[in-house]
Nucleic acid binder design. Sequence first.
RNA 1: UCUCGCUUAGCUCAGUUGGUUAGAGCAUCUGACUGUUAAUCAGAGGGUCGCUGGUUCAAGUCCAGCAGCGAGAGCCA
Length: 476
Amino acid sequence: MSLEIRAILATGAVGSEIEVKGWVRTFRNNQFISLNDGSTIHNLQIVVDFNQTDEALLKRITTGAAISVSGVLNESQGSGQKVELVAQRILVLGDSDPEKYPIQPKKHSLEFLRENAHLRFRTQLFSAVFRVRHHLAMAIHKYFDEKGFFYLHAPIITASDAEGAGEMFQVTNLDVNKPPRGEDGQINYQEDFFGKKASLSVSGQLQGELAAMGLGKVYTFGPTFRAENSNTARHLAEFWMIEPEVAFMDIHGDMDLAEGLLKFCIQYALDHCADDLQFLHERLEQEEKQKPQQERSPMPLIDKLKFCVENEYQRLTYTEAIEILKNCPPNKKGKFQFPITGFGADLQSEHERYLVEKHFQKPVILIDYPKEIKAFYMRVNEDDKTVAAMDILFPGIGEMVGGSQREERLDVLIKKMEEFDIPQHEMDWYLDTRRFGTNPHAGFGLGFERLVMFVTGMSNIRDVIPFARSPRNCEF
RNA sequence: UCUCGCUUAGCUCAGUUGGUUAGAGCAUCUGACUGUUAAUCAGAGGGUCGCUGGUUCAAGUCCAGCAGCGAGAGCCA
């Protein structure tokens, strides 16, 4: 039985005879193997007596090779590690041709590793990122489970295109070269697999609302698809989203739920990923040193994470934010590309960044947006000008969470749907929630990859998902 | 989709006002050394300068188109 390196480093007894399996990171001095098995960021040092080892075997111990080693765990004579494994028997399980293996014992650019996404799990950086990603996913489930939520599997294929969250990917098994057409020349979707036009889901919210109207508190956590031609470091065509939906809850409860979730997840990562976060922290500090003083982040990674757990997020209304922005120096000096003149304007990235990174210097929750710039299902406030929407903005990330209290009044909702040009007959099942036992309820969407970005300090969203899907890119 | 930038060895990059045979570090290979931690020392191999076309006696270098990648913006999570 071979042991995990994580367990050996944590509890391995000096003098014990053990076996390990892993991949060679480096082989120094014909004598020292750095072995990693993915269980931890740390490597186990294997000591080889090259005088007693077959030369042909030594030549096969190359970067990337999979090996099995048995021997005795000793206290290390070197200063880099406490214990090391003195090899008695080494087996090469899988060779790795050093002339061809792309991952070298040297620094690689993130772009290069992205092109080699199938091999990047073998680097310290990406193994750390994906271990953190795992723990954050566990934290999501733990938070909701402890609060009595039920995990709802919303459908991935949907025939509803009224969610308005973005462009959709069509799902069909019709022959795209010669689809069946009706007399009017239009494609006849009655002959398609579902008997109607279908797409990949852009949001599980509407289905979440249906479930919340019986189960009370539910959340979804699954893949979500947007066919937008977005080419940024913050968008993916396929990403994972968490969408809780709660009956009998207003916008303030919604904010508490979201802020609590973010703090819980960040604390969970601090508790469960200390070694990986330490590595990411140091990596980021190295990177910051390369940057000019002005562009440097005001806080190192772990301090920033602790700050976001310990401090209240700044809550303010859209109208208050507009006042701050209208009177702020960059607006007065004309530094904004989109100057703020008054109520009604949608906030651009530059405005959100000013509020979060310059003015408040902490996460910000904005509520009560003008009703025209938000989705049809958000509840109209008493002023009839704003809706009970909330966005949580994070430094360096932008919008982490978008949520709202839902419009529970049937007549108001129908009127809004007319204003937004949403065909009522297609959404009858949704309107039934307002016809039968309607009540104030609320929910939000959290972009999982954006949370992973924030916690790991990675600056490109394609580096926190195993295999990124983005415009013109569907490799692996 | 828009704006800007980049594309030179396996990787990261340098390459002057256009001018002989395009360089460095790392990696790889060979040898030496053998308690290393990005090991060290000596040597070697490695290039269709993204693609297509143009200007010129002469193009890695200038121009145009295309492609890919990146940064920012829009859309949003």
